[in-house]
């Protein structure tokens, strides 16, 4: 069917568009030149520099701890919230629906500063929490939760509540209905929401900047901080390794899937 071929061709063009800058990053990571404007020769020196950098591993670790934890919490909270909003009618429901858009609208700098003011006020009162990875995680969940809820809700709106009713009529309790009927049907929405939340956290700079404390530098903070001396291809080497590792894990996973 020609439409199908056309769709496939178009989609792979879009994928090419998505990976074009990634290809540039990979090429530059092997380029000798510091500024990466022109190709001056093949070199592994940026990978060596990356290995010698004693801080970058710590920053990467911080970034991943924040991304995984905040994604996990926000995905659970967001999915439940979406279910409640779609399934039940309650007071303040429409208020909550509009409140969800606030983290999407509010500019990063405003969100960052207002959360910092909030943390500071609370800490003045009860001596907790200190600015740290913990406060960064709280802040990330606060914007991720909106994205997850909105994505999961788009999926739930297409599900027929009769399916859950049927499960209950067959004697399943709420918990079983949730695990065996609702969640599997919602799953693609949950995965989409979680992926979005994860990449948002991994890349966030401004909110992280304001809610971080000493010793909780993340990778984006480090990379943006290089404006003073210039971003070196070390970061390209790191990006190449990160993308490479993800694709490798993905390929192994796909292979494993096929075996089963």
């Amino acid at each position: 069917m020609p439409v199908k071929r056309l769709l496939a061709a178009y989609s792979w063009l879009v994928f090419a568009f998505l990976y074009l800058p990634i290809a540039v990053i990979v090429v530059l990571s092997f380029n000798e030149s510091r500024f990466g404007v022109n190709w001056t020769g093949f070199s592994l020196k940026w990978y060596e520099a990356l290995l010698e950098n004693r801080r970058i591993g710590e920053y990467l670790g911080n970034t991943l701890v924040v991304a995984f934890t905040s994604t996990l919490v926000s995905t659970v909270l967001g999915t439940l919230l979406a279910m409640g909003i779609v399934r039940y009618r309650f007071r303040l429901r429409s208020f909550l629906r509009y409140l969800l858009y606030v983290p999407v609208v509010v500019p990063d700098v405003v969100m960052g500063i207002s959360l910092l003011l909030l943390f500071d006020t609370v800490r003045d009162g009860i001596g907790w929490p200190r600015l740290s990875l913990f406060t960064i995680i709280l802040a990330h969940i606060s914007f991720q939760i909106a994205y997850v809820t909105l994505v999961v809700r788009a999926r739930l709106m297409l599900l027929d509540p009769a399916l859950e009713e049927a499960a209950r009529d067959l004697g399943a309790d709420n918990w079983r209905t949730f695990w065996e009927v609702t969640l599997p049907l919602t799953w693609p929405g949950v995965v989409s929401g979680a992926l979005l939340a994860f990449s948002l956290s991994l890349d966030d700079f401004v909110v992280t900047f304001f809610t971080s404390g000493s010793g909780s530098t993340t990778l984006p903070l480090y990379i943006y901080g290089k404006v003073k001396t210039g971003i070196t291809p070390e970061i390209h080497a790191l990006s190449t390794l990160m993308v490479g590792a993800t694709i490798l894990i993905l390929a192994l996973g796909a292979l494993f899937w096929r075996r089963r």
Binding site: P21, I25, P220, M242
Partner: peptide, 22 residues
């Protein structure tokens, strides 16, 4: 689906600079 998000596991600033270089 993962292939759609993997490019976004690299830093925003680095991606933008890659476009500038292109």
């Amino acid at each position: 689906l993962l292939l759609v998000v993997i490019p976004f596991f690299t830093n925003f600033l680095i991606r933008v600079y890659a476009w500038i270089i292109l």
